[in-house]
Amino acid sequence: MFHEPAAPSQKDPAGPYKMRLGIWMFVFYSLFYASFVFINLLSPLSMAKIVFAGLNLATVYGFGLIVVALAEALVYDWLCRQKEAHFARMEESEDIQ
């Protein structure tokens, strides 16, 4: 029994869609993150510029990276659930026929 999955997983027809979506969202976030790193490296003083409510670019961008991560995660989950529900409905209608 030691090589059995801890919990058996079923076939997932939405899998390829979720994988493609995940990669695109990963690429988007990676670019956002890379921009932050490269601004620090190439133009570090611009991070000290005050941009919002007395806060500088470093603070606002830093918080932005955290907030955008959560926003992307929620959008990803919503889209995945839509697709999973779509396939579930299709499966149900096939069963009825």
């Binding site: 995940g22 990963f26 955290i66």
Partner: peptide, 21 residues
């Protein structure tokens, strides 16, 4: 925190499908 994006978008579901313990 940014590292979790890699975990969510790239690793989470495929790894769950493949793994055991």
């Amino acid at each position: 925190l940014a590292g979790w994006i890699v975990a969510l978008f790239v690793v989470a579901e495929p790894l769950k499908r493949m793994g055991k313990y």
